[in-house]
Amino acid sequence: MPTYLIVEQLLNGLQFGVMLFLSAAGLTLIFGVMGLINLAHGSLYMIGAFAAAAVAGATGSFVMALAASLAAAAAAGALVEILVIRRLYDRDHLDQVLATFALILIFSEGTRWMFGSFPLFLDVPSYLSGPVTLPGGIQYPLYRLTIIGIGLAIAAGLFLLIARTRIGIRIRAGEADREMIAALGVDISKLYTLVFALGAALAGLSGALVGAIQSVQVGMGEPVLILAFVVIVIGGIGSIKGALVGSLLVGLTDTFGRILLPVAFGTFMEPSAANSVGAALASMSIYLLMAVVLIVRPTGLYGRA
């Protein structure tokens, strides 16, 4: 395989991985701190994408579109936590699954009612369009490099937030012993609303950034939700570091699998059959990766028993 193709696919895998991280980081915070199984997380991703597409269409500003995705997803997340999720913390996980699954249906139909069934399109701004020349003469889309930079910057910001700030200390304490920090005077309800809104905002931003690469449509969040769960299982529930490492592993495994497996099967199969079988196995590769990690470390790479 030529060097330029390896570098290009490596960057594609990194871009896919950091997009997954933005969704998985919020999900692992919610799951780790609140112990809540939130199937509606993908709907918040969708809300961010639709808000960005609507604002970009009305104003022509990509920056305002990203701000709208953060605000809309965070507001929706806070509202859902206050009205619905707050009543589920002491309930069985099955109740949480049923309630958040109902939220998926509500958000999907509500979005279809507001925006229609046809996909929307969010254009890449002119100052981020076109390729950039990397060392070695390799050309790569500037927008995808920007996504990688934004994702890594947010990852660094989350690490600092969790490890170095007073809010982060409370979040970590809430994960370890929520009754104790409540007894020490911390308003656990406000803390949970903040964590949920933060996770929702990250998912919404991820949806907006991806919306400029693919179409924005109802139901776009469900595949991302599945991959985000795979990521937090691989990385370890409640670990931001695990979410980042797991996201990058999944992104690189999926990207290189879609390139290498059809080539490998093409040595002894017809090209059309090799592409079909290779693509199918590439889709399975991330789940095989998850199975291997769970066999070796049942708590995930950075999870705690």
Rank of each mutant, 00 (worst) to 15 (best):
Y4M: 10
I6V: 14
E8N: 11
G13P: 08
F16C: 04
L22S: 00
A24R: 04
A24I: 06
A25C: 06
T28N: 01
M34G: 10
L39F: 09
H41R: 00
G42C: 01
Y45H: 00
A49E: 00
A52W: 02
A54W: 13
V55A: 01
G57Y: 03
T59Y: 04
G60V: 03
A65L: 08
A68P: 03
L70D: 07
A73G: 12
A75N: 08
L79S: 13
V80Q: 13
V80A: 13
L83D: 04
V84S: 03
R86I: 07
L88A: 07
L88N: 02
D90G: 12
D92K: 11
D95A: 15
V97R: 01
F101A: 15
L105P: 11
W113Y: 13
W113A: 13
P119G: 09
F121L: 10
D123V: 09
S126D: 15
S126A: 15
Y127R: 09
G130E: 01
G130S: 00
G136V: 01
G137P: 06
Y140P: 02
P141E: 04
P141T: 05
R144C: 02
T146A: 14
T146L: 09
I147Q: 00
I148D: 10
A156G: 13
G157P: 09
T165C: 08
G168P: 05
R170S: 14
R170Y: 14
A176V: 11
A176N: 11
E179D: 14
M180S: 13
I181P: 07
I181D: 09
I181V: 10
L184I: 10
L184T: 14
L184K: 13
K190W: 15
F196I: 03
F196L: 06
L198F: 05
A201Y: 00
G204A: 05
S206D: 05
L209T: 04
V216R: 08
V218C: 06
V218R: 01
E222G: 06
E222N: 11
L225V: 02
L225R: 05
V230S: 13
V233M: 12
I237Y: 09
I237C: 09
S239M: 04
I240D: 02
A243T: 05
V245W: 02
S247Q: 02
L248D: 01
L249D: 05
G251R: 03
D254L: 15
T255S: 07
F256D: 07
R258D: 09
A264G: 01
F268D: 01
A273F: 04
V277L: 14
A279W: 05
L281A: 14
A282Y: 00
S283L: 15
S285F: 04
L288R: 00
L288A: 12
M290D: 00
M290A: 09
L294P: 07
I295L: 14
P298W: 02
T299K: 15
